[in-house]
C-alpha cells in the first residue's frame, strides 16, 4: 500500500485505492523492480582490495562511480568468506538461513574438536605439522578433492540413448561436489545430527578417502567405460 501511495504521489495526482491501476502507475511501479543500469558496479567489500585501490590512480575515478546496493549477506568482516557463504546457501532448506549458518558453525566446531584431539595425541612434531586444524581450510580442500573432471551427457542416436563423456565446467563441477557431500551427510539415522555426520565426511574427503571421493571415482569409471561413444559429442 505504501508503494502504491509513493507511486501516486510521484505522478503528482492521487488515485483512490479502490480503482484499478492505470498504465502510467504500473510503469512507475515496474521501475522499482527494474534492473540497474549497466554502469553500476558491484560493491567492493574486501579490505585488502580497497587498500590497494586507495593507493592506485583508479581511486579518483571511482569517487563518482555509482555502485549497486550490497546484499545483506555481504560484509567486510574478518570471518566473511565467499565460499563459506555459498556453502551455507546449499545447506539451507526452505529459506532458513539462520539455521543453516548455525549448522555450519556446529560442523566447524566438530571438525576443530576432532582435529585438535588428533593434534594432541600425535607424538612427533612432523606428525603434528601435517594435521590441519583450520576448519575453513578443511572445507575448501574437501570440496576441491571431490570435484569431478568429467561427467556423462545423454545423447540419443539411432533410437538408443548413449552416455557420452564430456568435460565439466567449473561451476557445475563445484555444484556436483557440494551436492554429493550434502547427500552423504544427510544419509544418516534419525538420531544422528547433521553437523556430526558432515564433519566426518569433510575430514574424510580432506584426507582423500570416504564415500564422496568414491562417488567421484565411480563417475570417472563410467566415463572410461563409455569412451567409445566420445565422438557422439560432436557428430
Amino acid at each position: 500500500m505504501a508503494l502504491f501511495k509513493q507511486a501516486t504521489t510521484f505522478l503528482g495526482f492521487s488515485i483512490p485505492p479502490h480503482k484499478k491501476l492505470t498504465a502510467a502507475v504500473k510503469s512507475v511501479l515496474s521501475c522499482r523492480t527494474a534492473y540497474f543500469p549497466a554502469e553500476f558496479q558491484k560493491p567492493i567489500t574486501d579490505q585488502d582490495v580497497l587498500k590497494e585501490l586507495e593507493d592506485s590512480s583508479e581511486f579518483e575515478n571511482l569517487k563518482f562511480q555509482p555502485f549497486l546496493p550490497a546484499p545483506i549477506s555481504l560484509n567486510s568482516s574478518v570471518f566473511y568468506d565467499e565460499f563459506k557463504e555459498r556453502f551455507t546457501r546449499y545447506v539451507m532448506k526452505g529459506g532458513q538461513k539462520k539455521l543453516a549458518r548455525e549448522l555450519l558453525e556446529k560442523t566447524f566446531y566438530e571438525i576443530k574438536k576432532i582435529q585438535l584431539k588428533k593434534y594432541y595425541e600425535a607424538e612427533t612434531d612432523s606428525e603434528r605439522n601435517e594435521i590441519e586444524c583450520n576448519p575453513l581450510v578443511i572445507l575448501k580442500n574437501a570440496i576441491e578433492n571431490c570435484t569431478p573432471m568429467l561427467t556423462v551427457k545423454k545423447v540419443s542416436r539411432g533410437g538408443s540413448v548413449y552416455q557420452v563423456p564430456v568435460p565439466v565446467q567449473e561451476k557445475k563441477a563445484e555444484y556436483l561436489s557440494i551436492k554429493w557431500m550434502l547427500e552423504a551427510a544427510r544419509d544418516k539415522g534419525s538420531r544422528v545430527h547433521l553437523p556430526i555426520k558432515l564433519s566426518k565426511e569433510l575430514i574424510d574427503a580432506h584426507n582423500g578417502e570416504g564415500r564422496v571421493i568414491k562417488k567421484k571415482q565411480d563417475l570417472h569409471k563410467l566415463c572410461e567405460a563409455n569412451r567409445a561413444y566420445a565422438h557422439f559429442r560432436w557428430s
Binding site: M149, L150, P165, A230, H231, W234
Partner: peptide, 28 residues
C-alpha cells in the same frame, strides 16, 4: 557448422591416464 572433434585427443589422453593410475586424480 562446428569444427570436427574439438579437444578429442586431450579427452582420450585424460581417460587413458585415469585408467592407468587406477583413477587417482593427482597423477593426471
Amino acid at each position: 557448422k562446428q569444427e570436427s572433434k574439438i579437444c578429442f585427443t586431450e579427452l582420450m589422453e585424460l581417460l587413458s591416464c585415469l585408467k592407468e593410475g587406477d583413477f587417482n586424480e593427482k597423477l593426471c
